[in-house]
Design a binder for these strands. Structure first.
Lengths: 171, 171
DNA sequence: CGCGATTTCACCCGAACGGGTGACGCCGGG
DNA sequence: CCCGGCGTCACCCGTTCGGGTGAAATCGCG
């Protein structure tokens, strides 16, 4: 994200702040110096017959270049929005309904209750939330989760979910 | 989101089409006309004693303005890349290898580091294990996970994984 | 009926996690 | 040059989790 983190409601970035005046001042100064320099040159080596034209030409060229640079610098952003599409493959059968591997379930010896708990764990619910949803005490839920863990050989909820997923017990 | 989160591999689209030479030619012509005009003026009304300075000043100013205008004209508009996800149906492909939804990633503003941490979390690793694998301090890992949580709006590791999965950030 | 499996609950303790704050170095852009 | 984003790390505090033990109630089945 461009600006602040975490903010979801992010209005398009405002125009860049760039300080024109600073450049304008520098611009003026530079111009003065240039003119002074040229004048000094002119007075020191009065060698140009038609100095005026050459003089003007040089000044014009220099200032034109300077101007171009400045213009490029301060022309308001003029941003061009480029739409880039990223392909996000969505399986035709996105709704491919999941079927539990009953064999694996039997092999692991997970009871129905434990299976239910496991599903809720996989759904990201905390022990407390599971207890609330199933009208159980938190202790009970913890007991079940412990059993699930040992049957799945997991030491953490996430491991359990991962194991269960690769055993096709949950989608 | 500053949209610009874009990928690094950015082959910037070719430069804007605008034809510079036309402007350059016009620029030159205009310059010539201007100088000619000023010269005529000078010859016609030989009224300026120190015409050179004034002359130069005028030319400088005019050309500077011209330059600014030109610069603004040709400054390449900076591009703002907006990612858009487009659903591309893919054949049943059971082994459909996973591709991350970069748009979602940009939208959420997850940094590469955070994404890496998220992947390891999803793999079921504990904070300590992640720290060990990435040669980081546990505190650092915790900081990253915290950020991941707030960006994903999750309060638990499992919730984060679940969110990430449904946003197609991880398989 | 008795036995084993299942489900329910309690308590305790140490480890892990979540949340907050502060700080430092680096880098890239205005 | 200064600012902001990023990555790194520390410390603290409260909560949750994981693990262990124990113990009821319930139920299916022989």
């Amino acid at each position: 994200m461009g600006g602040t983190r975490a903010g979801k409601p992010e209005p398009p970035d405002a125009a860049p702040p760039a300080r024109p005046w600073r450049a304008v001042v520098g611009f003026g100064l530079l111009g003065g110096v240039l003119i002074a320099g040229l004048r000094a040159l002119e007075y020191r080596y009065l060698l140009l017959q038609h100095s005026a034209e050459v003089y003007a030409g040089i000044v014009a060229a220099l200032f034109a270049l300077l101007g171009i640079w400045l213009g490029g610098r301060f022309s308001r952003p003029r941003e061009r929005v480029v739409l880039r599409e990223v392909a996000v493959p969505v399986p035709v059968a996105a709704t491919a309904q999941f079927t539990r591997d009953e064999a694996a379930l039997a092999r692991l010896g997970l009871t129905p209750r434990e299976m239910g708990i496991l599903e809720l764990i996989a759904a990201g619910l905390s022990t407390r939330e599971i207890a609330a949803r199933l009208f159980l005490s938190e202790n009970t839920v913890k007991t079940h989760t412990s059993r699930v863990f040992e049957k799945l050989g997991a030491r953490r909820r996430l491991q359990a979910v991962q194991r269960a997923r690769e055993q096709r017990l949950i989608p």
